[in-house]
Design a protein around this nucleic acid. Structure first.
Lengths: 354, 354
DNA sequence: CCGCACCATCGAATCGATTCGACAACCAGC
DNA sequence: GCTGGTTGTCGAATCGATTCGATGGTGCGG
């Protein structure tokens, strides 16, 4: 055994105690004499033993301390969106001190829901978190269920046996909609997040609008409808990125009957619209009002400050972390919904006089 | 056994074969009759058995298939920098198909190198990747060594027994420096990445310049020195973020003898400098030239395109992935260094006539 | 002085799989 | 018909720890 790494048995032998006593010296779960403990620890140091191998512990306890986070293909795409980052940060910050690690499970790009990512099948995890907006026909979800892994879904659709953590984006969208309408706008366009994994780009036809698959754009659109908004156009984007917002802005603002207000479903999209307006020589908000969603801090948009409804991103992560903790204690946490708050910036104002 | 999840032993019993045969049916490692295999698989389906528990497999093989990535506190901070994201994306994309998962190991914010993050001690991993620029006095590194976990260091300092993956940023910096000097600039200021975990902000004194702890700012600074640049000022920033670049730009461009060119050590910092110049009413590059580092695509800077030296971020991730694979095959991969390429944009030009 | 309780320690079972060596059955060749 | 090789299956050891129940001491109270 000279070549391979020492095990608890080696340490126990060196200290002249049994394996079980040596285990007690490290775990502290049980009565042990101080002198014995010191002897074991000394033997461990002498053998260069670096503590109990987590694998052995895990096998016995059935727990790995790993939380799998299914991020879809967001690493490449939406992770350029601070929304995902800040939530992941909140999650990791809550989980880390509890001894849980976050395992990133990336998905292949632009796959239909039937696609199964290999790590979902093979990776060890105690809990899975779906941050990509789960749908019922997701093959990954089916696999997780089969494996008996508890699932937490973030802003997904309500699903059997899945713990939901969401935000009141429908309410928030309605509030934002009423704010814009209250300013007097009548020609309002919407820049939407992707409808489904096809990630199309352009003004959506009524038929297309009827088949929105993903929950987030659907809810936010529904919120605006709740506020009584009948949009003059809904522009579908392939991802929540500045460049797509800019393309949408150019498309919507170039025509003859341009809208007097544009509401985007994310701040990154909204900032792209602001940039498009600037490039077209339009003043914000005098010529066109722009509002976003999420409440990010976008330093490069200065001096403009986006009107937006902000969501508590770090808290969202923390809530997920607490749900994980509850699950591991054997409890079944209920669904949680976080509120949003309207933040009026400098990018919305009354519509132009004529 | 009705309540708990079925095990391979249950399946074997149901199929009327031994555990070893049942194992063969799943792993395929060994001769097995087609009829027997079908019988085992049928029994597995009947029992709702979801395949061998990875934990058991791992304990036996000693491999977890997990690559720990120590990101420092970058999740909060520099992960807003696409540099980290794109590299992580490249890493995850290479590792995923190989059956490896990426475990995020966050660090606490602003800790001295003696700080040890709990997951480094306890998490299961086959290889650790340090993407935060390792230093020799890092407590996390010491722990990884004690645990016998191979370490890959990205752009860190050369360390005993650590596999290095780097970029030729000193060469790239020199090339960028020569480009700027070739345009005729003589008053050149530098906006630097953080020197150490203290993350100070402001123009660095000569004493401060002599004690740069982190490798990346030091190498990039050395490259500019190689090009013969003697900066009129080096501004130290707390992180590679737009707002800090903007603050640096304001500080450097407000004075009476403002530099005619500013070289930033990252594109995010450089874009902040451009924004500061715009706010001060300075034209880029007519009044001041700005150059960056990394070669990112920053859509919101349009119509400006940053002059920068670009690094192959996705390939950096892929190289790390291959190093991991080599390590797991028992090989000892050598250090790798990737080249950078100068990309001249619209933000650099000759200095103003007077 | 006896007995009860408690503390420290140990042995053995357990977690869920992989894998090596043994063994039996079967086929082909001589 | 016997031998040698292949193929399929099985039993048992193994990975590295935790944990339960048992045992042997010690101390305290009655």
């Amino acid at each position: 055994m000279a070549s391979s790494r020492p095990t608890l048995a080696d340490v126990a032998a060196a200290a002249g105690v049994s394996v079980s006593t040596a285990s007690l010296a490290f775990s502290g779960a049980g009565p042990i004499a101080a002198t014995t403990k010191d002897r074991v620890l000394a033997a461990a140091t002498a053998l260069d033993y670096s503590g109990p191998n987590p694998l052995g512990r895990q096998l016995r306890s059935g727990r790995s301390g790993i939380v799998g986070v299914l991020i879809g293909d967001q690493l490449r795409r939406s992770f350029r969106d601070p929304v995902s980052i800040q939530m992941l940060d909140g999650l990791a910050s809550t989980l880390g001190p509890l001894g849980f690690g976050v395992l990133l499970i990336p998905g292949a790009a632009d796959q239909p829901p039937a696609h199964l990512d290999p790590l979902v099948e093979s990776a060890v995890m105690d809990v899975a978190v779906l941050i990509c907006g789960a749908t019922a026909d997701d093959a990954n979800l089916a696999t997780l269920r089969r494996r008996g892994i508890p699932v937490i879904s973030v802003e997904g659709e309500p699903l059997e046996g899945v713990i939901e953590v969401g935000i009141e984006d429908r309410v928030g969208a309605a509030e934002l909609g009423r704010h814009v309408q209250g300013l007097g706008h009548e020609r309002i366009a919407i820049v939407s997040l992707p409808f489904d994994w096809q990630r199309r780009s352009g003004v959506a036809t009524p038929a297309r609008l009827a088949e929105i698959r993903w929950e987030i754009p659907r809810r936010r659109l529904a919120g605006l409808t709740d506020a009584g908004i009948v949009p003059v156009a809904v522009y579908e984007t392939p991802a929540s990125l500045v460049e797509h917002g800019k393309a949408a802005g150019h498309a919507l603002l170039a025509g003859p009957d341009r809208p007097t207000a544009i509401i985007a479903q994310s701040d990154l999209l909204a900032s792209g619209v602001v940039l498009a307006a600037r490039e077209l020589g339009l003043r914000v908000p005098q010529d066109v009002s722009v509002a976003g969603f999420d409440g990010l801090d976008l330093p490069w948009l200065a001096p403009d400050v986006l009107t937006s409804v902000s969501q508590p991103l770090a808290e969202k992560g923390a809530v997920i972390g607490r749900a994980v903790q509850a699950l591991m204690s054997g409890e079944l946490p209920g669904p949680e919904t976080l509120g949003m708050t309207l933040q009026v910036g400098t990018t919305t104002g009354p519509p132009p006089a004529h």
